[in-house]
């Protein structure tokens, strides 16, 4: 019972990742692609949690944390890049339009 439900949710999550892949490739503007990339990261995290439950192992929890952190940092860096043209900068935020 449990395994069947977990497998079904694994299939659904893979479909969701495929769908966001479409938006990643097709998205007309760069922010679209960033949103899609962020979604893929978060869905990957969920997929790994489900796989961990299926295999009854706690070994993958580090990876969940790691992907969560990296997906956020990636989104932040991309957003700053398209807003200002640079990722890291010095000085006051309000100086730049």
């Amino acid at each position: 019972m449990m395994n069947g439900l977990l497998l079904a949710s694994l299939v659904l999550l893979s479909l969701a990742i495929l769908g966001s892949m479409f938006r990643l490739l097709a998205g007309p503007s760069i922010p679209d692609r960033i949103a899609a990339l962020d979604t893929i990261g978060i869905l990957l995290l969920a997929t790994i949690a489900v796989i961990g439950m299926l295999l009854r192992t706690t070994a993958y929890f580090d990876i969940i944390l790691l992907i969560g952190i990296l997906a956020f940092i990636g989104t932040t860096a991309f957003a700053r890049y398209i807003e200002r043209g640079v990722v890291l900068e010095s000085g006051d935020d309000r100086e730049h339009p």
Partner: peptide, 23 residues
């Protein structure tokens, strides 16, 4: 066990619907 499986399935369904929205 079944309740936890159903919670996970609901989560997966919500993700799929929101990706439909994304598309």
């Amino acid at each position: 066990e079944s309740v936890i499986g159903i919670v996970v399935l609901i989560g997966a369904l919500i993700s799929v619907i929101s990706v439909i929205g994304l598309i």
